[in-house]
Amino acid sequence: MLTIALPKGRLMDKVLELLAEAQIIDSKELCEQSRKLIIEDPKANFRYILAKPIDVPTYVEHGVADLGVVGKDILIESERLVYELMDLGIGKCRMIVAVSDQSNLNEVKELGFSAKVATKYPNITTSFFRSHGIQSEIIELNGSIELAPLVGLADAIVDITETGTTIRENGLRIIGEVFPISARLIANHVSYKLHYKKLQDIQEKLEGVVQC
């Protein structure tokens, strides 16, 4: 039996739609039925683990899940050793740097030598600013990141946005892009080898329906 870790939350609905379209699951209802954490699909010989997105790469690295679906942002931030097999083309958004509307900064490099940056993504933020030669003081927050520059906690934020609307509505302005994001199919190193044919089959089914 193959075990697949799926991310609860924002991405879940689109992932289920994609799996149904690729005929990997019969219908979306499979994983909507309850608050269960483990869902069996004996007919297909699959088992699904519903996990917090940031934990999906952990389950896959440790091999308790053979495959997983997770956003590129979380994949990079988690620094887990997993194989990244394909771009699923869903959950598209961007990792951006934004400052307060009132700020006179227009580019990332203008942030100067020591920028205070609020983010949910400390690893990504550190390496991004380091690669731009900017020393940053990372302030790790867990939600409502937009608040930080408005109340003077940080000079800038690093966060994800789909359309930029929330950012704008909160009186912030985007001054740089870190990288584009979409959901990825990831695999455990050993599962990839031991179940190569089954994984290949799933990948081919997904390739048939994915629009990148």
Binding site: V82, Y83, E84, L85, M86, D87, R184, A187, Y192, Y196, Q200
Partner: peptide, 27 residues
């Protein structure tokens, strides 16, 4: 990392080394 998504992106962007994309299936 077997990051085939980004590998494909890079090969297509630079339009060279297309044989790299054959490798994942040569197993």
């Amino acid at each position: 990392k077997k990051d085939y998504a980004d590998l494909k992106g890079l090969v297509e962007k630079e339009d060279t080394g297309h044989d790299l994309l054959l490798l994942p299936k040569l197993r």
